[in-house]
Design a binder for these strands. Structure first.
Lengths: 376, 376
DNA sequence: GTGAAAGCGCTAACAG
DNA sequence: CTGTTAGCGCTTTCAC
């Protein structure tokens, strides 16, 4: 019903952490601490110290800190002065223990070397910050153990919620009854497992890529896919197979490769393998559909090194439309994912879930788009 | 003196967060909670609840949780059983408040879309994890306000330490007397400001790149640099200028460009500008040295689009040796930075600083390497 | 308006 | 070996 999620308090966009009115006064603190020389500015200073210096109670300091109404201006100023003078900073640990929230959101990616995640993460980050949350990124390395330990951060209340872009986690998560945890899946998800998710229609997207190649006259189309354990890999494979079948083509098993990496190198060597002359003459693919632009970029490199020209000898289609896609030679035809929106939506779903843990949050599919460039 | 840093306790590599002996017993918890149906497994359960269920005191539970010695096996088993049955998880917030440490390390990058940071961050992450710390990544977007708020996470004890790869922060930080905060600088640093740092010798590295071009016979060498506010930009520019001068060449002002972005696109358009026919015939550069591989990759694309061939018409040298460098056409000659080691060293310096806040931690410079590929 | 006091969930003495 | 107890620094009734 609500046009946007408004977690309890903190509804206005605030650039800084809980930076209510109370921050203004001591911005630009001239660090006028009376302490010794190299003394780490007001190390173990607590609210009690400030209270003493200001000649008030801790309750009053707390009220000032939290911009509560019932404080006389004079008192407030006294407190502010004491805070300023002492260089006091709230111990967020204590505050969080009291309020039982950390205002931290976690985003887990399987590999932050993959540029695909960058824009998604930016989308998450911007929405989170708008709602007074910090977003912190973790690299799971697609490792179940590490994933689990990050989920533990959630269980142990060190973060309020999480967004997981990591396929492997999904499987892990399943066994952990983690659907009770405040997290959402992004890009890779299992619709059946009761966790809110956002992604694209991988089946249709793959079909679109293949149909584009078909329209260009290709009939022997190869698929360079990632590990078939991933849901998106299965969906894209099915889209590829069905598109071919619908065109009256029987997909050859030899045209398909499954890689356990999305690195450029993986794509390069896969291309070389695919083009091996061991293939029956009339069965060698004339086009390659790779399920990620990183892979496709590698494919371009691999084809180049075995003397094949793109798109004359062989066409290439990628997936994602990351920024490198338009820079390589030839620029990649690819399926664009709305990365920014994917991230923003994921963040919004999570915020929604935090605001109302009971409401069932829907899964959402965002539109993709075929971007035609020089590689086809 | 010490071969390696060993923060107080937690010295052995532990794959999971404080995952002492206590974890084993309840791995694979069969989630046998007696609670209602959709009840979020043991939401607000505390150590006291476990103690009650196990018929022991909270102290004993705490001991079991922390794998202390003095607990009779029978008692320990009782507690473990209660923990297992209830699905209890430590509230890390409370624990941290008590122990006054969060076991969290922050890494700030100006832009996690830049692949240069990926390997560095992995290096940090692996060292951090080996020492029982979590590493969380923040994107400052090269924005001073955001940088400041992340530093606040430190001040407010939400993280134990930070590694900053963000040039802009350095300036910000200076004004904040933040040299007292537990952080180290990586890649971009101000040696004079008393913050431990790790990086490379940018001056020599740039010189090496230019000397390589000189050796190839080039005399009109352009420099595509980032914003000169950055220390590394100034250092590399100086290395470039001096190398040219030493070779008896007077560097032309027209050969130098300063960009406020490291994106591919920025490199592409810079290349186009640089090659404009407005240049006097005999002054057009025959080689371009770009201060990052992303820029150089864009340059390749830009040159291609105006019909220039690399390296025949013009040579290109990049910087960093990120993974894309070897994939583009032609593969980039570049200055390789030891990214992994940079990250690992930064993490070690930070850990050292945390273990002994008083000891002065040195700045360290790591070796770079010229990698010659097809673009020259 | 302001203060006193009770915890948030945990760890660490200190007793027994 | 195990239990009791005193806080960690903060927020929040509830009085005054």
């Amino acid at each position: 019903m609500r046009p946007d999620v408004q977690p309890e308090l903190h509804s206005e966009p605030q650039p800084e952490w809980r930076a209510g009115p109370r921050r203004q006064p001591h911005a630009q603190s001239r660090s006028s601490e009376p302490a010794g020389p190299a003394r780490p500015a007001a190390e173990g200073l607590s609210i009690a110290g400030v209270a003493r210096q200001a000649g008030v109670s801790v309750a009053t300091v707390s009220r000032v800190l939290n911009a509560h109404e019932n404080v006389r201006p004079a008192t407030r100023d006294k407190v502010l002065a004491a805070i300023d003078a002492s260089g006091y900073r709230v111990n967020e640990l204590a505050r969080n223990l009291r309020t039982a929230e950390s205002r931290l959101l976690l985003t887990m990616v399987p590999d932050f070397g993959n540029p695909f995640y960058a824009e998604i993460v930016r989308g998450i980050d911007s929405v989170a910050r708008q709602h007074g949350y910090f977003m912190l990124l973790c690299d799971t390395g697609a490792d179940a153990g590490r994933e689990r330990s990050y989920f533990d951060l959630l269980r142990r209340r060190r973060a309020d919620g999480a967004i997981c872009l990591d396929p492997a986690t999904i499987q892990q998560a399943l066994g952990e009854a983690s659907s009770a945890l405040p997290w959402v899946a992004c890009c890779e998800f299992e619709p059946s497992m009761g966790v809110p998710y956002v992604g694209i229609d991988n089946y249709r997207a793959a079909g679109d890529a293949v149909r584009h190649l078909l329209a260009r006259g290709h009939r022997r189309i190869a698929l360079i896919n990632s590990d078939i354990d991933y849901l998106y890999a299965r969906q894209r494979q099915q889209g590829y197979l069905d598109a071919l079948t619908e065109a009256g083509i029987t997909p050859l098993e030899d045209w398909r490769m499954n890689l356990n990496s999305l690195d450029y190198e993986a794509g390069a060597s896969a291309a070389a393998v695919l083009m091996e002359p061991s293939h029956p003459k009339n069965a060698a693919p004339t086009a390659i559909f790779a399920v990620s632009d990183t892979l496709a970029t590698g494919v371009l490199h691999g084809l180049r090194s075995i003397g094949k020209r793109v798109p004359d000898d062989i066409a290439v289609v990628g997936f994602d439309d990351i920024s490198i896609a338009s820079q390589v030679d030839p620029p990649l035809t690819t399926i664009a994912q709305p990365m920014r929106e994917l991230g923003e939506t994921a963040a919004r779903l999570l915020l929604q879930r935090l605001a109302n843990p009971l409401a069932s949050v829907p899964g959402v599919l965002l539109p993709h788009r075929l971007v035609i460039r020089g590689s086809t």
